[in-house]
Each structure stands twice: as C-alpha cells, then as structure tokens.
Design a protein around this nucleic acid. Structure first.
Length: 289
DNA sequence: CAAGAATCCTGTCAGC
DNA sequence: TGCTGACAGGATTCTT
C-alpha cells in the first residue's frame, strides 16, 4: 500500500465510486473493448455467464452511478454493473503489460491500448450484466433509497424515512433503503457536522435535525467529490491507481483526538469510539446531542 | 416486519 | 523473527 493509505485503509463510498467512475469514463468512454478476460470464476458472486464474450468487441457508450454501483453502458444494449466492495480498485496501465497484478480478477483492454484492471483483494466486489433499459429493476438496485445528492433527498424525505424507526440514527443512515451510497466514514462525519449523536433513536430525530443532516450529508459528499476530482490529473495517479484520494475526515478514525467543534472545552474529552451493530462509530459526546 | 447478528475475505497490525 | 488473533467493513442472508 502506498502513502495514500497511511492513515487508514480507504473504503470506497459514494464519492470514491463517483471519482472512480469519472476516471473510467475518461479512459473508456467511446472506446471499443478489444480484449476482456476474467481470471477467476467469482468475486462475491459468480461472474455472469459469458461476461467476457459479451463485452469483447462492444463499445462503451456511457457511465452512470447509482449508490455505490457503477453502470458501464455498452452499445450492445447491456450494462456492466460493478460494485467495488470494500477493497476494489481500478488500475490503469499501458497495454502489452507484463505480469498480472496481484488480485486482479478482470482485465479490459481498449482499442487505443489502455488496459484497465479490476483489483479486489478481499473479493467483496461484484460484476453483473443487466439490460440497459432494465437497469433500475436489477435486484441490487431495485430496493435502494434516494440518491443523497439528488433533489428527492430532502428534509421531508429523510424525516419520513426516520419516522417510527427504533434503530439508532447511525444504523438508519447506513441503511441503503433509506439513503443510498453512504458508508461508515461519511455517516460518522455527517452526524458530527450536524451535531446529532449517533446513538439517538432514529424516530427521535426532529424535522429540524433531519434538515441539518440532509444539508451536511450533501455537503460532506460534495466536498469529497470535489477533492477527488481536483486532486487527480485525469483521475489517474502516477502508479495507475484510479479514483482514490486523500481526504481529511473530521471524526472518522480519530479516536482520542481533539474535537473540532469544542477545542479546549474542559468537559470535552475528544473524539470517542463506540461500536454500533458491530461497526466503529466515531463521535464527540459533547458536541453531538 | 424490523432489528441485530452472522457471513463472506485478506491485508495489516498488536501482542507474545 | 514468526506466529496468532483481532480488526477493518458493504451488503446479503439468517435468526430472533
């Protein structure tokens, strides 16, 4: 792992997926795939039958993101549905390349000689094929909640989704049926910025607080996407890594550090870590109520 | 029906 | 030095 990962292992959430997708767009859109190969039978699920043969010879006509899924649309009327899981990344390299990188499970080569490799050590990622016109009905996409950056995700939507929920607000925001694309890192940071304690029962979050959460979720994601876009030239790092970027989380991974909201306050013990639903939550018990 | 636990996987790191 | 075990977590599946 390079210096990008020195702080903590970076997981792809919505901003990372968006940035990876834009990077794929830059190198693949309009290109014909002259070589496609899968190097093992499955990731999280089996690769669909005939994946490589259905992609080979096709031209990539566009990209779309839904939650943490990337849809690569082909001129055959089919889309390739990609999820990066927890450790998935895309590596770009010149064609004719040497050895297969470790954990590269799918390799694409375009008509201009660019090679794109899907690398995923933990193999929580997935690849599937879906008819482009039926994308929204795919089993992995059909039940997803609102896109957090779209207008449908507003105060009224979130307040309605939280009403009656007995689960902690942290768990509710991680539920992809409520809002699609948030992961542990951005939920922790958005809750901190909105001043809402992650332990609060979802139904106890007021409409006003729902509005603050909506605003901070959008702001957190938008800022991260901006960092991802601006920090990369053509979205490809010198080492070929695509779409990942450094970002300064306000609370995630910062147990014991001073809280940015109440620095120096005698009753602020800094950022705490607790476990909710088996996952780490980072927050400030003083600043978040 | 809802909520939480178990599950998949492997690189990393703390502890002995 | 090298081994072992804990840990990280997205999303599905299972259990309560």
């Amino acid at each position: 792992m390079g210096p990008l990962y020195s702080v903590i292992c970076i997981m792809p959430e919505l901003p990372e997926v968006e940035t990876v997708m834009r990077g794929l767009q830059a190198v693949l859109e309009g290109r014909r795939l002259r070589y496609v190969h899968v190097h093992r039978p499955d990731l999280r699920w089996p690769f669909p039958a005939g994946l490589a043969s259905q992609m080979t010879g096709a031209t990539v006509v566009g990209f779309r993101r839904r939650a943490k899924y990337i849809l690569m649309r082909l001129d055959t009327g089919r889309s390739v549905l990609i999820h990066l899981g927890m450790s998935g990344r895309m590596l770009i390299r010149p064609s004719g390349a040497n050895d297969l990188p470790a954990h590269e499970h799918m390799t694409l080569e375009t008509d201009d000689g660019t090679t794109v490799g899907f690398v995923d050590p933990r193999r929580f990622g997935s690849v599937d094929l879906v008819e482009t016109q039926n994308e929204a009905t795919h089993r992995l996409l059909a039940g997803l909640g609102a896109e957090p950056l779209e207008g449908r995700f507003d105060t009224a939507y979130l307040a309605a989704a939280l009403a009656g929920k007995r689960t902690p607000i942290k768990a509710a925001l991680l539920d992809q049926r409520v809002v699609a694309g948030l992961g542990n890192i951005y939920v922790c940071d958005a809750l901190f910025r909105a001043g809402v304690a992650p332990t609060r029962q979802a139904a106890s979050v007021s409409v006003t607080e729902s509005g603050r959460l909506v605003h901070e979720i959008k702001a957190t994601l938008t800022e991260a996407i901006a960092v991802g876009g601006s920090s990369l030239r053509d979205y490809v790092q010198p080492d070929g890594e695509l779409g990942y970027f450094q970002h300064a989380w306000k609370v995630y991974g910062r147990e014991g550090e001073p809280c940015a909201t109440c620095p120096g306050a005698p009753d602020c013990a800094g950022i705490s870590r607790i476990v909710q639903s088996g996952r780490s939550t980072f927050y400030c018990p003083r600043a978040q109520r």
